[in-house]
Design a protein around this nucleic acid. Structure first.
Lengths: 134, 134
DNA sequence: TTCGTTGCAAATGTTTTGCACCTGA
DNA sequence: TCAGGTGCAAAACATTTGCAACGAA
């Protein structure tokens, strides 16, 4: 379908960086970190490669509720928790809830092929430090 | 907490319009329809009132995957289906899946207070008309 | 050489905001 | 009267894109 990809230092570095993190950074955060090791990289390149890596299925885009998209190099299916106090996005280790797809199909005449779920609340750290607002 | 609200024709009209629709229109769509009956209303006013109505709990903002937020005057808890072909957002009549909140809490040390779920796939109409792309 | 990739900057699209004027209570 | 609401335009913000130069195959 698409064109044949060539190797790119920028793309490799972005993937490596993302794989080293579990906090689902935004494009902007990724950009800032990439500039520390590649001072000339541009934001456009970061976005282009994040998009490419998503198409390749090597990373995932998390459309969190806030304006910014976040990216995740953990491919295996899992759900996310978003702390409403500090904004942190945390991987959840929970049993599969794939069956909700079947539940959604029950009284519905379209075809349900996938779903996304985000859980919200207060993370462990923010529970311990009720003072902190961010 | 917030200031005392005054009545506003614009806000009333926006709420009335939203209550007449089940297709979860975006701010822009709402703006265009409002202009038909209030030619001078501004987009800023639409956004401000949508935000206000959300805070009041009279409407809900649906952060769908695409860039634009959509708004829903149906308050009672329900889930949404998004057609990947035509982009339509449809209310699902399905059994409650609230228990996934408890499942998420199992191995997690934070406090899970709510969740959002979106189902994706192909709607009934798009299944019947595979040709149509939008 | 070829064609995907990059850096840069400009453009896009959505949402927010500052401000002077308007309006409901 | 007066605090909240409005219209307008500018700003903010994330993301995309056009283009000439670069670099991998």
């Amino acid at each position: 379908m698409g064109p044949v990809l060539k190797k790119s230092k920028q793309r490799d570095a972005i993937l490596t960086f993302l794989e080293s993190r579990t906090d689902h950074p935004s494009a902007d955060i990724i950009y800032m970190h990439m500039r520390e090791i590649m001072p000339n990289i541009s934001l456009g390149t970061v976005y282009r490669n994040l998009g490419l890596l998503c198409e390749l299925g090597q990373i995932t885009k998390l459309p969190c509720d806030d304006k910014v998209d976040r990216y995740d190099a953990r491919i295996s299916p899992h759900n996310h928790f978003i702390c409403e106090k500090c904004g942190k996005v945390i991987d959840l280790e929970m049993d599969s809830i794939d069956f909700i797809k079947d539940m959604a199909s029950q009284n519905f005449h379209g075809q349900v092929s996938r779903y996304t779920t985000f859980f919200y609340g207060t993370c462990e750290e923010c529970l311990k430090n009720p003072k902190l607002e961010s």
